[in-house]
Amino acid sequence: MSKNLPVLFGLYPVLLSGIALIWLLRLRDRSWPNWAVWVLACGSIIAFVFMTGPWVFTSYYLRYILTALFALTAVFSYCRMKCGSPYSRRHDNRISVASVLIFLLFALLNTLAIASYYPSGKTLDATFPLRSGAYYVLQGGASIVTNPFHALAGNKLAIDIVKLSLLGNQADNLAPRVLSNYQIFGEKLYSPCQGAILKVRDSLPDNPPGNPDTNHPEGNYIVLQCLMGDILMAHLRRGSIEVAPGDTVATGQLLAEIGNSGNTLEPHLHIEARNDGKPIWLIFNGRSLSINSLITRK
């Protein structure tokens, strides 16, 4: 089952968008209020998948294409309504309860997605630890809507980061079985702050994609003590860690490489911050991140 999860993650936003577009195309012989509410309902679905869909499995840019298709479909639907008969059947003059419920549900989810960008409580502002290319937040933000797996695991403030190709995806295809096909595998990891190394593990193998090591959730990792808290960087490549407990490091110093060790389906950087053992907001160069955030480094 775990080997199929990336495929499901990649397809679900496309399928959900497709359902919304089909609903919109099927609108005909409706009253204007009925039509307007259905457009709002379908638009709320498109907004939800635009903000929270894991687009990196297909292409980061696909979400813009589907949004444009929604706009064109809405215009087509409007023109068909305007050019059609001014009369409609009686039951079509009533506003659909289903459309209202769909709109309210996705309006709530969209509100949670937007709120996930805004920090509350203590924050740790660090330097982004990756240097060359376009990086994408696969999970992040303080909401179960944008950060479901971390929220269920007890730390909804953790962030998962991958690297994008020129086509806007993380790998050569939807779910490759070779680690080197992932853009971020072997990427250099640099210190996000000045501090001291507290803990290191560097002995675990890098798992084949789709084969997580659930017995060692962090895999190979580094815990770095910064001024405002401790930063954990996990799923690192075996044999790549350049530091040891007790070392003092400067901001931007090479630490390790990104791998696929521990409880992970595919290569990515898991990073989180804690203060006195409690999760705190981790922001980079003054910027809060959530799912679908894009960070470009030259």
Rank of each mutant, 00 (worst) to 15 (best):
S180W: 06
V200Y: 00
V243L: 04
A175H: 12
H216W: 10
I283P: 06
M51L: 14
N34H: 10
K163T: 08
V39Q: 10
S261W: 10
G259I: 00
G252V: 01
V137Y: 01
P217T: 01
A196I: 14
R26N: 13
P245V: 00
A107E: 08
G252C: 03
R177K: 15
L5N: 14
V39D: 05
D92P: 13
V37H: 04
C226E: 01
F106H: 07
A41Y: 02
T127K: 12
I159M: 08
S116N: 05
D276C: 06
F9M: 15
S96G: 11
Y61L: 07
R297N: 11
R237T: 03
G53W: 11
L69R: 08
L66D: 14
D202S: 12
N181K: 15
K122N: 14
N181L: 09
H235K: 09
L15W: 11
A20R: 04
F149I: 13
I102E: 12
R177S: 13
Y60E: 12
S31E: 04
V145P: 01
R297I: 07
H150Q: 07
P176F: 00
N4P: 06
A20D: 06
L24H: 07
L24Y: 02
C193V: 02
S120T: 15
E272T: 11
S17G: 15
C226G: 02
I45P: 07
K163R: 12
L11R: 05
I184H: 03
N285H: 08
G210F: 00
G154N: 08
R94W: 09
K3W: 07
N211C: 11
H235S: 02
G195F: 00
T248D: 11
F185H: 10
G140A: 04
